[in-house]
Simulated assay, not measured.
Amino acid sequence: MRILDKYILKKYLSSFALVLVLLIPIAIAIDVSEKVDRFLRHADLSVGEIIRDYYVNFVIIYGNTFMPLALFIAVIFFTSKLAGNTEIIAIHSAKISFTRFLKPYFIGATLVTLFSLFMNHFVVPSSNKIFEEFNRTYLKKKKINDTYLTNINLQLGPNDYIFLKNYRVENNTGYFFTYQKFDGIKLKYKLSSNNIKWKPNDSTFQLLTYTKRTILKDKDIIESGTKLDTTFNFTPKDLVNVDYMAKEMNSVKLNEFIKQSRERGIGNLNTYLVEFHKRTSLPISSYILTFIAVALAAKKRRGGMGVNLAIGISLMFIYVFFLKIAEVLGAGADTNSFFMVWLPNITFGGLAIYLYFKNAKN
């Protein structure tokens, strides 16, 4: 690696870290001003708990969210400074092409991308879980009871469904349980019970006060009893997953959940797929945003760094807006979630390629 590469790479990473460090305290200050009254409502909530369970995870979550913005601003900032000091002109005068000039930027973008991928897939989901639990316990007006689930419905396969009026997680007991099996749109079998309990020792369910109904062509067969031990293609963990947020599962668990749900014939999984694909698409945007920023800032402009920053921030706003729209549309049942999540990168990737060839010719 040449001295020039080390110099640019050092500027790349230090400027990125500086912008990120400047943005996060601003976000914390705004959040504290909005939440301080809610913190004070809980006499049992200590400052240590607020810092450990809320703001440590706040920094991880929002720091990861701010990464593309911080990177874009940082690259425009120090590249504009290089251009303003005529350093880039000197580099080109030394017969170094624009493509070769991009090498240290590519290395820096790779480092940021790898770090962001690890954070997105494994660290941020764990932080999200703790952060959301704190929110549900202390900050949200309507608390969510995740130990007592209500109105559960789960599709076990293309034609199999279960329904539960309520379920207690602590003792693995459900109430008013129904299992239905269809042939097309015709009901073929129905099993109802007032009470269902999971028996972990032998991985079976025990039904109390049950009724079985088998529907044939010319008659119905109805059986009833007080106790029945049976098995189903689900476990209590699957019932809890119904209420889990996709962003609270790491990518391994989220992928398993999506695969399992597909095997059961569940139709719309786009909310989970959007979250899964976004964890890769957002870090990859580091390359695209870096190349756009370099292409915009590599030329000395009348008006200096301010013009470059104005153009860059405007493009960043458009990118973030486009990203949010794509996420919302991608969660719809009739859309291709993978394409929608990657559409902002595809669009801005096209802009990056155009700007690259434009600068490479000069």
Results as ranks from 00 to 15, higher is better:
259 K>C: 07
234 F>L: 13
218 D>L: 05
347 T>C: 10
155 Q>W: 01
15 S>M: 07
296 L>V: 07
297 A>N: 09
197 K>A: 05
82 L>P: 02
255 N>P: 08
140 K>P: 10
199 K>T: 12
290 T>K: 01
39 F>Q: 00
340 M>H: 08
46 S>D: 11
53 D>Q: 15
109 A>T: 03
122 F>M: 07
216 L>K: 11
332 G>W: 02
107 I>P: 04
6 K>H: 10
72 F>D: 00
34 E>S: 06
78 F>D: 07
230 T>A: 05
92 H>V: 08
175 Y>F: 15
342 W>G: 00
26 I>H: 06
178 T>Y: 00
299 K>D: 15
277 H>A: 08
103 K>M: 11
147 T>Y: 12
46 S>Y: 14
218 D>E: 13
195 N>T: 15
25 P>K: 03
299 K>G: 12
61 I>K: 07
282 L>W: 08
242 V>L: 11
99 T>G: 06
239 L>T: 12
268 N>Y: 01
184 G>M: 02
73 I>D: 03
249 M>N: 13
136 R>Y: 13
67 M>N: 06
226 T>Y: 02
353 I>F: 01
85 N>T: 13
118 F>A: 08
232 F>I: 09
117 L>I: 08
237 K>W: 10
77 F>L: 01
103 K>A: 11
321 F>Y: 15
71 L>Y: 07
95 K>E: 12
117 L>G: 03
14 S>M: 04
